[in-house]
Amino acid sequence: MEKFADPRETFAEALLEAAKKDSRIVALSADSSSGSGFSPFKKNFPDRHLEFGIMEQGVVGFASGLATMGKIPVVATIATFVTSRPFEMVRNDLGYMRQNVKLVGRCGGITYNDLGPTHHSLEDFAILGTIPGFTLLSPGDPLEIRKATLAMFEHVGPVYMRIGQQPIPFLYEGEYPFQIGKGITMREGKDLTIVATGTVLQKAIAASDLLKKRGIHTRVINIHTLKPIDREILVQAARETGKIVTVEENYLRGGLGSLVAQVVSTEYPVPVRMIGIDDTFVGTGPYEDLLAKFGLQPEQIAETAVTFLRK
């Protein structure tokens, strides 16, 4: 019934589309090309595909230099290796220098389930979010990955986009307007708001649909841009529904929940319940089972929402 797509293939197609339109785009690989969706780009534009080998820190510096010369570099690899690993270079060479460079982290969150904590990325948004002027994208469905990719190249300035590794379902019925920094209401409701992002947006929507069957009408907001965050849509949700549950595949500290709490606590304080990864290194195992460990499956999210509403 549901249609799924591989996020990396989706990104690959969108990158090719963008690159055909803009010859300034160059792709930088740290022995990460094929796994990150660069293959179609490489085939079409071999001269614009640059391979550096396993040197994530060096590659960020090269991207900064290329940007200075008018190129639009995109660096893509396993999420943690393009964020945590070269963090200072990202902060100084891209953020501080305000370079027009695009970073793409794939296999983000715990979607690289079986490879363990060295390959999980649960803090990428939190740490890059501290860099002034950085835009953070967290698309939640295949169509949105395409739109976010195209928007990322249109936008002038440093951008980080994270995608997962597991196939994800199409959540949108058809065309819809995508704008960096503008959240999207995926389900209407007045009883409670669920704010979600990225890989687990699908879980939040499924939870909302479960709750509807129980007569509870939840609003679902998709925050596909974690920075700059859409304050308006959040404050409106706080005002109209009174309680917010956040759903994310991130560490709670510094993640979506923290950002939502920051916004509503200063502008319209309401109780916020956060679902995500607590203060722990996540083990290995089947992806869906790992999500369940942290209450990220639809039934669990629905249960948390019900308990929260009753309080």
Partner: peptide, 23 residues
Amino acid sequence: MDSKFPGHPDMHKLPGVETNTGA
């Protein structure tokens, strides 16, 4: 699930493993 043999070694999971590598 939670195997002592993750995709990269974890010294806190398995006797004999000295370091957590993978990066």
